[in-house]
Computed example of a mutant assay.
Amino acid sequence: MQLQGYHAVVTGAARGLGAAAAKRFVAEGARVVVADIDGEAARACAQAIDASGERATARVCDIADPAACAALVAQAESFFGAPIDVFLAHAGLGYAGPLTEADPERIRRIVEVNVLGTIYCAQAALRSLVRSPRASLIFTSSLQSVTARAQRSVYTASKHAIVGLTKALALEYSPQGVRVNAIAPASSDTPFLRTQLEAVGARDVDQAVREVAASMPLGWLPTPEDFADAAVFLASTSARSITGHNLLLDSGAAAGFFRRG
């Protein structure tokens, strides 16, 4: 029960890595707001975590709207009856494909959600976090926040921005007791990865996923549960002296050696 009595908000929590983190937070003793732009899926996730609605509740939030981010924080504080202790800003969008073929509106939306949306979340969350004695702001960056891949230029640029934001906010808010970190996962076998593989022309997506996993130095992809473990660690007192850090969760990929493919 590493997060006993904590109050946590997770964006992009309706499915995948965000849902795994929200579920694990509750298992570790926290109460959680499951936030997502897909309200129906967010409600289903919260219901699956805690049917009573006492420990998990859902809220709709488009993080690209600063007013929606502010409303989410207000709703969370109302649900908890206290400031937020942990805010996991996980929501984001992916994009794969040659830059010259990228639709300008699609580029704008990636930057709007991944960069501006994360900043808006941080801006709103910090106004609450500064009133918590155990405050932790956690971003989801990516393996592409420290490396790069062909046909991922827009996404890579957006995730590099998260690392800069993490470092700057860690320095800015450490005097107020707020720790700011990021988790940089490699791809997991989620709908997000499968959509990316389809976008770059994979004909057999199952085989493509296996090839991606085999290319990792450890020979496997991190799981959503691995991501949840990392989020719990960074939120807990076990990481009390860690801030401004981008935690790689990449099966060794950023070390620079891929076994195959």
Rank of each mutant, 00 (worst) to 15 (best):
226 D>R: 00
103 D>E: 15
99 L>S: 14
174 S>F: 03
172 E>P: 03
108 R>N: 12
246 N>W: 02
29 G>Q: 02
111 V>Y: 11
29 G>L: 00
101 E>R: 09
256 G>C: 01
179 R>E: 10
154 V>S: 02
144 Q>Y: 14
256 G>V: 09
110 I>M: 09
223 T>S: 11
86 V>S: 02
109 R>C: 08
223 T>R: 04
182 A>L: 00
69 C>A: 13
75 Q>D: 15
92 G>E: 01
224 P>Q: 10
75 Q>R: 11
244 G>L: 00
108 R>D: 15
257 F>Q: 12
136 S>I: 10
124 A>P: 07
211 E>T: 13
16 G>K: 01
59 R>Q: 14
137 L>K: 01
54 E>C: 09
259 R>N: 08
113 V>G: 07
162 I>K: 02
178 V>Q: 00
90 H>C: 15
94 G>T: 12
214 A>D: 08
117 G>P: 06
108 R>C: 06
4 Q>T: 05
77 E>R: 00
102 A>P: 05
162 I>R: 01
44 A>T: 08
8 A>H: 02
126 L>E: 05
67 A>Y: 11
51 A>L: 10
44 A>K: 08
238 S>T: 15
89 A>L: 14
153 S>Q: 13
71 A>T: 14
143 L>I: 15
200 V>M: 12
197 L>I: 07
124 A>F: 07
116 L>S: 12
147 T>D: 06
22 A>C: 05
216 M>A: 12
131 R>G: 10
120 Y>S: 07
4 Q>M: 02
123 Q>D: 12
160 H>W: 06
44 A>Q: 10
250 D>P: 08
90 H>W: 02
159 K>D: 14
198 E>V: 15
1 M>C: 00
132 S>P: 10
103 D>V: 11
57 T>Q: 14
173 Y>M: 10
182 A>H: 01
118 T>I: 10
202 A>C: 07
166 T>N: 00
161 A>S: 07
211 E>N: 14
175 P>C: 07
82 A>V: 06
176 Q>F: 11
214 A>N: 05
2 Q>H: 10
239 A>H: 02
128 S>Y: 09
226 D>L: 07
94 G>M: 03
152 R>L: 13
234 L>M: 11
254 A>M: 01
81 G>S: 08
58 A>K: 03
104 P>Q: 11
251 S>K: 05
183 I>Q: 04
71 A>W: 04
136 S>L: 04
250 D>C: 07
209 V>Y: 04
147 T>K: 08
96 A>W: 08
246 N>L: 10
135 A>T: 14
152 R>M: 15
138 I>T: 13
203 R>E: 15
70 A>D: 13
6 Y>R: 12
160 H>K: 04
223 T>G: 05
68 A>D: 15
222 P>D: 09
121 C>W: 03
205 V>F: 04
32 V>M: 06
85 D>G: 10
59 R>C: 14
245 H>W: 05
97 G>N: 08
176 Q>N: 05
94 G>V: 13
89 A>T: 13
140 T>G: 06
1 M>D: 03
140 T>F: 04
256 G>H: 03
140 T>Q: 03
62 D>Q: 07
26 V>H: 01
114 N>Y: 01
261 G>Q: 15
136 S>H: 03
